[in-house]
C-alpha cells in the first residue's frame, strides 16, 4: 500500500451504519454476494458502478452500529482504496485497520468534493485533495502504528504458530 492514493470519489453523508454497509440479511453470505449489497438502500447503483481504486468521502460517525467486520471487508472487496470520513465509529476504525483498509479522518473533506470528481489521499500527511478543483482539506495524519498495520496488509499478516506477533507488536 502506498501512502498516496488517487481515485474517483463517491460522497455520502453522516451516520452510515454497519447495517447499510453490510446488511444483516446477507450477513452469512460469502463476500462476493455481500459486496453487491453495500449501501444499496442509500444508492442502489453504488455497488454495481464502483471501481477498484475509488475513494469514499463521508461524514460523521461512519460505520456506527455493530462490531461486524464484514462492513470494512465489503468495501475492501469492492476495491475502495481509502475511506475519508469526518469521523469514524471506533470499532469500524479498528476493523478497517485490522483488515488493511486505509482510512483517513478529515472533517473538511466532505465539504470540498462531489461524487464523480477525482480525489487524492495522502495518509502520512493526513491530507485530502480534490484533484478536479484543486481544493485541499487537512485532516489528522494516521498514527504510525496504524499505518504500519495497514502497510503489512492487516493485523493477521504474517501471523503464524511460530511467530504469533501481529505487526503492531
Amino acid at each position: 500500500m502506498d501512502d498516496v492514493m488517487r481515485g474517483r470519489v463517491w460522497r455520502f453523508g453522516d451516520d452510515i451504519s454497519t447495517d447499510l454497509l453490510s446488511p444483516g440479511a446477507y450477513a452469512v453470505d460469502p463476500v462476493e454476494v455481500r459486496k453487491l449489497h453495500v449501501l444499496e438502500s442509500v444508492d442502489p447503483n453504488f455497488a454495481g458502478s464502483v471501481e477498484p481504486g475509488d475513494l469514499l468521502v463521508v461524514g460523521r460517525n461512519f460505520g456506527c452500529g455493530s462490531s461486524r467486520e464484514t462492513a470494512p471487508e465489503n468495501l475492501a472487496a469492492l476495491g475502495i482504496a481509502c475511506v475519508v470520513a469526518a469521523s469514524f465509529a471506533r470499532i469500524f476504525l479498528r476493523n478497517a485497520v485490522a483488515i488493511g483498509l486505509p482510512v483517513l479522518i478529515c472533517p473538511d473533506a466532505q465539504g470540498i468534493v462531489e461524487t464523480g470528481q477525482q480525489g487524492q489521499v495522502d495518509l502520512a500527511a493526513g491530507v485530502f485533495e480534490n484533484l478536479t478543483t484543486g481544493a485541499t482539506a487537512v485532516g489528522e495524519p494516521l498514527p504510525e502504528e496504524m499505518r504500519r498495520i495497514l502497510a503489512a496488509g492487516g493485523i493477521l499478516a504474517g501471523l503464524t504458530v511460530d511467530d504469533p506477533s501481529p505487526p503492531s507488536v
Binding site: S67, R68, E69, I91, R94, N95, A98, I99, P143, E145, I149, G154, I155, L156, L159, P164, S165, P166, S168, V169
Partner: peptide, 20 residues
C-alpha cells in the same frame, strides 16, 4: 471494549492487542 474478529484472532493468538 468491543473489537472485530481479526483483532480477536490476533489477541487470542498472542494475548496482546494495540490500543490508543
Amino acid at each position: 471494549t468491543g473489537v472485530g474478529t481479526s483483532d480477536m484472532v490476533a489477541a487470542m493468538a498472542t494475548g496482546r492487542l494495540w490500543f490508543r
